[in-house]
Design a protein around this nucleic acid. Sequence first.
DNA 1: AGTGGCTCCTGGCGGC
DNA 2: TGCCGCCAGGAGCCAC
Length: 301
Amino acid sequence: MPELPEVETVRRRLASCLPGLVLDQVTVNDPSVSLQGEAELRGALQGRRVVALRRRGKYLIVDLGGVLLVVHLRMTGRLVFTPEPGTRAPRFAARFAPGTDLYFYDTRRFGRVWAVEGAAEDGFFGSLGPEPFGPRFTTAYLRDALRGRSAPLKSFLLDQRRLAGVGNIYADEALFRARLNPLRRAGTLTSPEAARLRDALLETLQAGIDHNGSSIDTFVGPEGDRGAFQEILDVYGRGGEPCRVCGASVRRVELGGRGTHFCPRCQPLPRGARLAAGGRDALARERASRHRAARPRAARL
DNA sequence: AGTGGCTCCTGGCGGC
DNA sequence: TGCCGCCAGGAGCCAC
């Protein structure tokens, strides 16, 4: 699932070759890739020269000087240089110069592209929270944003209006690194805990970038290269496996329809801190399903 | 306003 | 072997 580190990986690779090139031709093979039709995208984008590659949260931005080509990969989107014969046609393609075509493949078809006028950029991204690596994301900001929230900490981190770029994988990993329970009411964090969470978020996202992202499902870079962060995940996708730190069994619960993974021993609920209502429900569901299954899953270990 | 549930979408996989 | 049904989740929408 492309999150900030995966989009940043793509951005860096494209930034090394696209600036200065002209976007010659736009092709839309799947109309659902954009609310704007092919004609509108062509009119807005074709013939413009790439000025820079930028990123805002999980959005990739091709800055064409006054107009932006904005891409969101959502779940399974991939931007690659080489066509993939034998698969469904790319939903969208952009030809910059002979030999530097960019193909947008997207199995689950959740991804989107937009042409955004430069003057409308602030409005387009207006609902997004601060960039994790930007100057606005301070401990004071995080502490204030958490204040009064009754939702689970994990749900808070996934809310792009509070912080841009964190998704399911890096939320679980950052909370493990911060030793904070994902089911806890977000508003119960102390100032030191908020500081710890900020540090853990930055460390985790940076580690993801350093490893060229996570290739758990389908993510690849522009040259089809896989990331490596999935090889050092502490909790995500490791439900039932032993915690790398303490050996306790990593738990997996479903929170807001998302798999949520944590170590009950390394990420305990401190005395006085309350579970969020959604967290209580998630634990109850997990217990019920474990009871129903009642099969010796532990044998895998 | 904040919270949470539902929806979209389809390849891959478990189970029978 | 083959087929059916379920699973994964980012973000927008909606109800409460």
